[in-house]
């Protein structure tokens, strides 16, 4: 804590020295993991939009999935003397040194989307979604939607052992735990991909009497759901009606499916991690208010009632 006070004083002094600095002149370095998924690309473009909106000078660095690139980028930002650093860390460990360097240079660091295993003194806050909560929102929707009817759910898990797969599974199970009429009958990994989602769903459909025993599909991400929807159609069933489809992420393609009545609900993993981060940063710059160590983004539920085509068009522009 003592360290942080020192940092705080230092930043305050820095701000004073810069004269009447306003948020408009803020320079922020953003080290992005890469562009391995549509969501990641959207996060990048939303961050840029947010920066533009707030007249922040955003220095963007793409790490192409490599930690060493991120560390280099961070050192570059420190050398340039930016006002703050945003980073979406590619891995959890190995950040202590470079974060310490940032701290020594009195530059606040905000982690986006993922946490790190390092002393919490070394960064200002983490902006991330609550993956367990995402699963719970999806589960709650299903509980409400089926009411008292019996419902056998098949689950498409994310990559085995990955934290979103573990957490989203747990959240969903928590939500249906007290509802004996809903149970998960089959659960397999679809590796978060469309192709595997389709293949695994084909297996589920065969194994569950051509899909007649399946009431709903819960997919840990939309891509797998999109693949599964095709499998359901090819089996001669109507996705969204014969088999309800609920998934997580809210990527544009699922809104198209919802508009066509083939998917029922999705829980948004917002690509806008930067918005709350900028809010926290501006507040801190204005009056020194420290944000909580963790800022949870909203896990918003979208259903067919939410004008999916409109959302689709909005999202499409973000580079998903």
């Amino acid at each position: 804590m003592r360290h942080f006070t020192r940092l705080l004083l230092g930043v305050a002094a820095g701000t004073l020295m810069a004269g009447a600095a306003s948020a408009a002149d803020l320079t922020v370095g953003f080290s992005q993991i890469g562009s391995e998924s549509g969501w990641r690309a959207a996060e990048t473009s939303v961050t840029k939009q947010e920066a533009e909106k707030r007249k922040v000078d955003l220095k963007f660095a793409d790490a192409q999935q490599k930690q060493e690139n991120q560390i280099k980028a961070l050192r570059g930002f420190i050398a340039q003397g930016v006002d703050a650093i945003f980073i979406a860390p590619v891995v959890e460990t190995g950040w202590d040194t470079v974060l310490q360097e940032a701290k020594d240079a009195e530059i606040p660091v905000i982690l986006l989307d993922r946490g790190v295993k390092a002393s919490p003194d070394l960064y200002m806050t983490v902006v991330a979604s609550d993956q367990v909560h995402e699963g719970k929102v999806a589960g709650d929707w299903l509980v409400k939607d089926v009411g008292d009817k019996t419902c056998n759910v098949v689950e498409l898990q994310g990559t085995t052992g990955s934290s979103p797969a573990i957490n989203r599974k747990k959240g969903f199970e928590d939500a249906i735990a007290s509802h004996a009429n809903i149970k998960i009958t089959r659960s397999q990994t679809g590796d978060f991909t469309r192709a595997k989602g389709k293949e695994v769903m084909e297996g589920f459909l065969k194994a569950e009497n051509g899909g007649k025993n399946i009431c709903a599909l819960y997919a840990h991400n939309d891509d797998m759901a999109v693949g599964a929807i095709q499998a359901i159609k090819e089996a001669g069933l109507k996705p969204g009606t014969d088999i309800k489809v609920v998934s997580i992420d809210a990527v544009p393609d699922i809104f198209q499916a919802m508009a066509a009545g083939e998917a029922n609900a999705t829980v948004e993993l917002t690509p806008n991690m930067a918005g709350p981060a900028f809010d926290a940063l501006e507040k801190f710059k204005a009056d020194g208010t420290l944000p909580p160590k963790q800022i949870i983004t909203e896990s918003k539920l979208y259903t067919q009632a939410d004008d999916p085509m409109k959302v689709y068009e909005e999202k499409k522009g973000l580079g998903y």
């Binding site: 391995e36 998924s37 590796d191 978060f192 991909t193 469309r194 192709a195 595997k196 389709k198 891509d223 999109v226 693949g227 095709q230 393609d253």
Partner: peptide
């Protein structure tokens, strides 16, 4: 075939 099957090109995962 893989692309046609899922009606989309998934550069990260196709053929992985």
């Amino acid at each position: 075939i893989a692309t046609a099957d899922i009606r989309g090109a998934d550069a990260n995962n196709a053929g992985l």
